[in-house]
Structure formats: C-alpha cells, structure tokens
Amino acid sequence: MLFDPRTFVSQVADLHAQAVARWHSQPLDNPYTGVMAVVCQQHQFNFQLWHQEDIARNPDVTDARIAEVKRAIDGFNQQRNDWIERIDETFIQMITAGGVTANADARLNTETPGSAVDRLSIMTLRIYHLREELDRDDIDDLHVAKVQEKLRRCGVQHADLSRSLSELLLEVFSGEKLLKVYRQMKMYNDPTLNPQLYRKAG
C-alpha cells in the first residue's frame, strides 16, 4: 500500500499547526498539492469560522456588525462542511486509483476520515488559542492552572483522535471498511427548502 495512514495523519497535524501559526501573522495561503491541499482549504474555513465566532460574542459590537458576522459564520460553516465532503471524495478517488476494493464483509464507520480531519483542525485551533492565553500579562495562577489543564486534555484528545484516524484509514485502504460520502444537505442554506426563503420569494 503506497498510502501510509500514519504518515498522512502526522503530516495533517504538522499542516494544521504550522498554518494556524502562519495565518495569524500573514494572509491565508495554501502551498500544498493533492489531498493535503484539500485538507488545508478545509482548515482555512475553520480558521475563519473560529475568529468570526469570537467577534459574535463581543458585547461591545453593534447589532449591524453582529448580523454581518452571523452571515459570515453561516457561510464559513457551510464551506467547512462542503470541504469535509471533499476530503472524503479525495480519499475515494485515491482508493479507486489504487485499485482497492472493499471486502465482502467490509463495515461502515460512524465517522468519516473527513470528519475526523475536521475535528483535528478545530482541536489545533483550540490548542493554539489556549497557549495564547498563557502569554497574557493580566492573568493569575488560577487562570494559568485552568488553561494548562485544558491544554493537557486537548493533547490527549488530539493524540487519541490521530490514532483513531490512522487506524480507520488503514482499514479503509485495506478494504476492511467502506468509505462513503455523507452529504450534509443543510436545508437552511437552500432557497428551495428553507420556508423563510422560498415563501419570501413567492
């Protein structure tokens, strides 16, 4: 098997961490190719979504600004979900190109690889911003201890999820598990399915 799941997951972790640090000091970019380019694009939408969510909770911003931010959140969240599906689509293309066929008794997993990559992306953002909390000069020892405990838990969760994703991909690329793309089909963004939109149009 040319595709090595453990190497891939390690590369995803590096991409997520390096991109978050880079994007806080320079414009968003995507210098990758193949599946890693898809992973990076999905990560960008989480990055943008994270910071819009912060603004939405600021009590000092105007109602007009909140409305603007909420629309941005809706857009970024839709794109985030679209690109989770793209990650899974890319894996299916890789499986097909590699001539992998699912075993007759292959099982489905409750979470797709794309969804797990998305959760790793969000966890990386959480870790980055928790570490930022430790650099503040207006915090006390209690705050430091609370943040350090959260960071410890995040580290455990990231490691557990990374291992689980490696195992899932190993099973998918060996034919032991099936991989399907599960469409989100969010109704509220579809003008033909959201009654608030199609009633207004009519």
Rank of each mutant, 00 (worst) to 15 (best):
L165K: 08
H158P: 05
D60I: 04
A72T: 13
E171P: 03
W83H: 03
A159H: 03
L151G: 12
Q78E: 02
L125R: 01
G175R: 08
I87P: 01
S164L: 05
I95G: 08
L142A: 12
A67M: 04
D60W: 09
D88M: 06
M94L: 11
D160K: 13
E85D: 06
M123R: 10
Q148V: 08
E85T: 03
N77Q: 14
E132G: 10
V147S: 09
A116E: 12
Y128L: 05
G99N: 14
L125F: 03
S166Y: 04
Q157D: 13
E171Q: 13
E133R: 15
Y128K: 02
I73M: 11
E167P: 00
E132I: 06
D118M: 09
D74W: 14
G99S: 14
N81V: 11
D140P: 03
Y128T: 02
N103M: 04
G155Q: 09
L168G: 01
H129Q: 07
N103G: 10
Q93R: 15
D63L: 15
L130T: 03
R107Q: 14
R80W: 05
A116I: 09
D118Q: 11
A106V: 08
V147A: 09
P113T: 00
H158F: 14
R153K: 14
S174I: 01
N77R: 14
L130M: 11
A106N: 06
D140T: 06
R152F: 15
M94C: 08
D137A: 10
T124W: 01
P113C: 03
A102G: 02
R136F: 07
D138T: 12
D63P: 01
I66G: 01
T62E: 10
V61P: 09
L161T: 10
D140K: 13
L120K: 00
G99C: 12
A106G: 07
L161M: 12
G155W: 06
T110I: 09
I95E: 10
G175H: 11
D137H: 06
K70F: 11
E68G: 13
F76V: 02
A116V: 05
I87D: 00
D160M: 09
V100L: 08
W83I: 00
E171G: 02
S162Y: 03
R86K: 15
R86L: 01
H158A: 15
R86P: 03
